[in-house]
Amino acid sequence: MSRNIERERDFDGEDEGPQERRPQGGGGRGGGRGRMRRRKVCRFCVDKVDIIDFKDVKLLQNFIPERGKILPRRISGVCTAHQRMLTEAIKRARNIALLPYTAD
């Protein structure tokens, strides 16, 4: 019994360490439980996407915030290879007015 409690404390201690750091960096979303940082996984890898089509505006729109810029990898969690395809597709879409170069 007591051992169990101790173990739980240990886990708490481990969890709290990073927890304290995270709010500083990420601004802390939510509260209380579940403040563990989720590892971002490239959604294109999950879906096994090999070609990102520049005509797929609905998809590309997810990666351009209000300003019209391309969302950086560190935020979207897209892997390098797919980010490269994605930027290429977005730039092509911009060229034929499917996406804006700037929005303001």
Binding site: R94, A97, L98, L99, P100, Y101
Partner: peptide, 11 residues
């Protein structure tokens, strides 16, 4: 023909 679409910017 992909159809009529609003352009993202004026041309």
């Amino acid at each position: 023909v992909l159809g009529r679409r609003q352009l993202a910017y004026r041309i």
